[in-house]
C-alpha cells in the first residue's frame, strides 16, 4: 500500500518532467533556451522513473542495472547537449537580443582581430575538438 503510493508519486513526478520539457520546447524563444528544457526528462525524469521501478520490484539485483542505465544517461546527455549547443552557437541559432551578456563573443572578436584571415576556425580560443577534425 505504502509502496503503491510512493511508486505513484515517483511515476507522476517523472512524467511531469517530460511534460515540462514539452512545454519548454514549445514556449522558449530560441534553440539554446530549449536545450535547458530538454535536459530534464533525460536526467531527473529518468531518475524518478527508475526509482519507481526499483521501489516496485524490491529486488537488490536490479539496482546495478538501473544505476547503469542512469549513469549511461549521465555520461552521454551532457556530451550531446554540448555538441548541439556548440553547433547552435556557431551557426548563430540564438537570438542575441535575448542575451544580457555574451563573453564568448568578445573572445571570438578579439581572436579574429589578432589572427585575421583564417576562415575555417576562430583562432586562439583553443577549441577542444581540434584533434577530431584532422
Amino acid at each position: 500500500m505504502v509502496n503503491d503510493v510512493v511508486v505513484s508519486v515517483l511515476l507522476i513526478g517523472g512524467a511531469l518532467m517530460s511534460l515540462a520539457a514539452g512545454i519548454g520546447l514549445v514556449r522558449f524563444p530560441d534553440l539554446l533556451s530549449r536545450m535547458h528544457a530538454a535536459t530534464k526528462p533525460q536526467v531527473l525524469g529518468l531518475l524518478l522513473l527508475l526509482l519507481a521501478l526499483a521501489v516496485e520490484n524490491e529486488n537488490w539485483l536490479l539496482v546495478p542495472v538501473l544505476v547503469l542505465c542512469w549513469v549511461f544517461q549521465l555520461l552521454t546527455s551532457p556530451v550531446s547537449a554540448h555538441m548541439v549547443g556548440r553547433a547552435g552557437y556557431r551557426t548563430r541559432h540564438l537570438r542575441r537580443d535575448l542575451l544580457t551578456l555574451d563573453e564568448l563573443d568578445d573572445v571570438v572578436a578579439r581572436a579574429a582581430e589578432s589572427h585575421p584571415p583564417r576562415p575555417d576556425r576562430t583562432g586562439g580560443t583553443g577549441r577542444e575538438d581540434d584533434g577530431g577534425r584532422a
Binding site: G14, S18, A21, G22, L25, A38, P41, A52, V84, T91
Partner: peptide, 19 residues
C-alpha cells in the same frame, strides 16, 4: 538542431513509457 533536440525529448518520453 531544434528538430534533433525535440526528437531527443521524444526518445526520452518513449523511455518513460517503457518504464
Amino acid at each position: 538542431l531544434d528538430r534533433v533536440l525535440a526528437l531527443d525529448v521524444v526518445l526520452a518520453i518513449v523511455g518513460a513509457a517503457l518504464v
